[in-house]
């Protein structure tokens, strides 16, 4: 299991045997270096035979992180089956809702867009 605590510029990330959760702000100065910390574990998760749940509840992110997120979504899309994606955004936050829609469209996957 991986559990990264949130900081002022990075989100909390939890990866266990059946789920991935990313919560908070995602604006690290070097996004690939930050995402590298949980990349291997996340890919292992995609190979699971069981249903896995991917939850993203991001406040906002920078463009570097946007590319890294897209890489995750593309890898997910290759596996396709048994993956449920939750994209959570704050009530009235059209900017983050549109970001979820855009990722789903690019990755050609179904995202559950959840307003909280």
């Amino acid at each position: 299991m991986i559990h990264l605590q949130k900081t002022m510029s990075t989100p909390e990330v939890i990866v266990d045997a059946a789920s991935f959760t990313m919560t908070g702000v995602c604006t690290p100065e070097n996004p690939p270096k930050f995402f590298e910390q949980f990349d291997k574990k996340t890919r292992e998760l995609f190979d699971s035979k069981h249903t896995i749940e991917m939850t993203f509840h991001l406040d906002y992110f920078n463009t570097g992180s946007s590319k890294c997120l897209l890489n995750i979504f593309r890898d997910m899309a290759e596996k396709k089956n048994n993956i449920k994606v939750n994209w959570i955004y704050e009530k009235g936050d059209e900017e983050m809702r549109e970001a979820g829609e855009l990722y789903a469209e690019i990755a050609e996957m179904q995202f559950d867009l959840i307003e909280k």
Binding site: N30, P31, P32, G64, C68
Partner: peptide
């Protein structure tokens, strides 16, 4: 994305 984290966008 570059190794330094620049996406160029």
């Amino acid at each position: 994305i570059s190794e330094e984290g620049n996406a160029g966008i």
